[in-house]
Computed example of a mutant assay.
Amino acid sequence: MIQIAVFGDVHGNLPALEVVLNDIKERGITQKFCLGDLVDFAPWGNEVIQKIRENNIPCILGNHDERIAFNIPVIPLSKHSEEETAARFIAIDHSKRHITQENKAFLGELPFHLKLNYMTGKRHWNIQLVHSGLESNDTYLYESENDEVFEDMLNASQSDVILMGHTHISFKKKLGEKWAINTGSVGRSKEENRLASYVVLTIDEEKITPKIIQLNYPVEEVAKQIEESEIPNYYARFLKNEKVVVS
Rank of each mutant, 00 (worst) to 15 (best):
N22R: 10
N22W: 06
N22L: 09
D23L: 06
I24W: 06
K25S: 13
E26W: 06
G28P: 04
G28S: 05
G28F: 05
G28I: 03
I29H: 03
I29A: 06
I29R: 07
T30Y: 13
T30P: 04
T30V: 12
Q31K: 14
F33W: 04
F33R: 02
G36W: 00
V39G: 01
D40A: 13
F41C: 11
F41E: 08
A42Y: 07
A42V: 05
P43K: 05
P43Y: 08
P43A: 10
W44M: 11
W44S: 10
G45T: 06
G45K: 05
G45E: 04
N46R: 09
N46L: 09
E47V: 08
K51N: 08
R53A: 12
R53P: 02
E54W: 06
I57H: 07
I57R: 07
C59F: 00
G62M: 00
G62N: 01
N63R: 06
D65T: 03
D65F: 02
D65G: 00
E66C: 06
R67N: 09
I68F: 00
A69R: 03
N71S: 10
I72D: 03
V74F: 10
I75R: 12
P76N: 02
P76W: 02
S78P: 13
K79S: 13
H80G: 02
E83Q: 13
T85W: 03
R88I: 09
F89M: 04
F89K: 04
I90T: 10
A91T: 04
I92M: 12
I92L: 12
D93W: 07
K96I: 09
R97P: 05
R97K: 15
I99P: 00
I99L: 03
E102K: 10
A105Y: 11
F106Q: 00
L107G: 01
E109S: 14
L110Q: 02
L110T: 04
F112Y: 03
F112Q: 02
F112P: 00
H113L: 10
N117H: 12
M119Q: 15
G121I: 10
G121A: 11
G121F: 10
K122F: 15
K122C: 13
H124F: 15
H124V: 14
H124Y: 14
W125D: 05
N126R: 13
I127V: 12
I127Q: 04
Q128P: 09
V130M: 02
E135L: 11
S136H: 13
N137H: 09
N137I: 07
D138H: 14
D138N: 13
Y140V: 14
Y142C: 10
Y142G: 11
E143N: 13
S144A: 15
S144T: 15
D147A: 10
D147F: 07
M153E: 09
M153H: 10
L154S: 08
L154W: 06
L154C: 07
L154H: 06
A156C: 13
S157Y: 06
S157N: 08
Q158I: 10
D160I: 04
L163R: 07
G165F: 01
G165C: 02
H166M: 03
T167Y: 08
T167C: 08
T167W: 05
T167S: 12
H168I: 07
I169V: 15
I169F: 12
I169S: 09
